[in-house]
Computed example of a mutant assay.
Amino acid sequence: MTALLEARGLSRSFGHVRALDGADFDVDAGEIVGLIGDNGAGKSTLIKALSGNLDLDDGEIYFEGRRVRMSGPRQAEDLGIEVVYQDLALAPHLNPVQNVFLGREIARKGILGRLGFMDEKEMRRRAAESFADLGATVRSLNSAVGSMSGGQRQGIAIARAMAWANKVLILDEPTAALGVVQTANVLESMKRVRDKGIAVVFISHSMPHVLEVCDRIQVLRLGRRVATYTGAQTTVEELVGAMTGALDKREGAA
C-alpha cells in the first residue's frame, strides 16, 4: 500500500553538523505514527522538511504516491498538512479566535464581505467549538494569547491544527506544557483525528504516551531511521534501546 506521506533518503547539514543523514519516514492515512529519538536525532529537522519549512541537501518526499517538492509551508497546508511546532507559532498580539483563523478568515456574505469585512461571529463559534472538542481551557476568547499560560497557548495551537488538518497532522511535543487532564484530552483527540482517516505524526519524549496511542513507532538516531515497531508489540525498554544504540535494529524491526 502506498504511504500517504513518505520521505526517502533525506539529508540536510548545517555547517559541519549533519542533522539528517539519509533519513526515511512514512505514515499512512488513518494511523498514528510515533516519531522518537534522543535530542539531536533529527526529529524537528525531519518534520520541518516534510512541512516545507526547510530546504534539503538530498532526498525525496512523496505525497499520495506522487513526488513533491515542498517549496514552503503554504504548499504543505494546501496538501492538507498541519503542524504544531514546539514554539507553537502563534501571533501573541492576537486573540485565540484570530489565531485559529489567521490567513483563513471567513468573509461576511454579500457586499460587506467583498468590502473586506470578516464574519467574526462565525469564526468565534467555530473556534469555540474546536476548543471544546479538544477539551482545551481557554479562559478568554478576547485576550491576546501572549498574556495566557503555556498550557492555554498549547491548547490553542493544537486546536487550530486539528481544525484545519484534512490529510496529515504533525504534533511536536504537544503535551509538554499540559497538565494531566489536558494531556489525556490531547491523546484522545489524536485518536479521534486518526479515526477520521487522517494521518497523525506524534513526536514525544514520553514513551508511555507514545505506546498508549501509536499504531507504529519509528526511531531516529544520528539523523537516520534505525527501527520501526508496532506499537502494541513493543516496550519502553526496546524503544530506549533503539534510541540509544543499545539495540542496533535497522529497518523492519516491526
Rank of each mutant, 00 (worst) to 15 (best):
L94M: 15
A91G: 02
H93L: 15
L134I: 10
R66E: 15
D78K: 09
Q75S: 07
G135R: 05
K121D: 15
G52E: 01
I81P: 07
F63C: 00
S140G: 02
F117S: 06
R69G: 09
G103C: 12
Y62I: 10
V68R: 08
L115R: 12
I61A: 07
A128S: 11
I47L: 08
R108P: 14
L134P: 02
L54Y: 02
S140R: 03
M70R: 01
I61W: 09
R67W: 11
A127K: 02
L50E: 01
L54C: 11
D87K: 13
R125E: 15
R126W: 00
L56Q: 05
P92F: 07
M123N: 01
L94P: 14
I81T: 06
G52C: 01
L112F: 14
R126A: 00
S140H: 04
S140V: 03
R69Q: 09
I47G: 00
N95T: 13
L50Q: 05
I47V: 14
Q86P: 03
A132R: 11
L79C: 13
R104E: 06
D87G: 02
L102M: 08
L94C: 13
F131I: 09
R114A: 08
M123E: 04
L90R: 09
Y62C: 05
A127M: 04
E105D: 05
N53P: 06
N99W: 08
K48P: 00
L90P: 05
K109S: 15
G103I: 06
D55R: 10
I81F: 01
A107E: 12
Y85Q: 14
E105I: 04
G65Q: 01
A91T: 08
P96T: 02
I111C: 14
V68F: 00
P96R: 10
A136E: 03
E120F: 01
D58S: 12
D78I: 05
E77H: 12
K109P: 07
M70I: 01
M118N: 13
V138Y: 00
R126D: 03
V97C: 07
N95V: 12
N53G: 15
M118T: 15
K109Y: 07
E60C: 12
P96F: 00
A89D: 13
M118W: 06
R74G: 12
M118H: 13
L56M: 13
E122C: 00
H93A: 15
G65H: 00
G110Y: 09
A76V: 13
P92N: 14
P96I: 09
D87F: 10
F63G: 03
Y62T: 07
M70K: 01
I106M: 13
M70D: 01
R114Y: 05
S130P: 00
R124I: 05
R126I: 04
N95R: 07
A49P: 00
R114N: 11
F101R: 01
R69N: 14
V100D: 10
G80S: 12
R69C: 05
L134S: 10
E122M: 08
A127W: 00
D57R: 02
Q98A: 14
R74Q: 14
G135S: 03
G59V: 07
L79Q: 07
E105G: 08
P92S: 09
R114V: 02
A128N: 08
R104H: 09
S51Q: 05
G65A: 09
N95G: 10
M123V: 01
L134T: 11
S51F: 02
G65E: 03
K121F: 10
L115P: 03
Y62F: 14
I106R: 15
S130L: 04
Y62S: 07
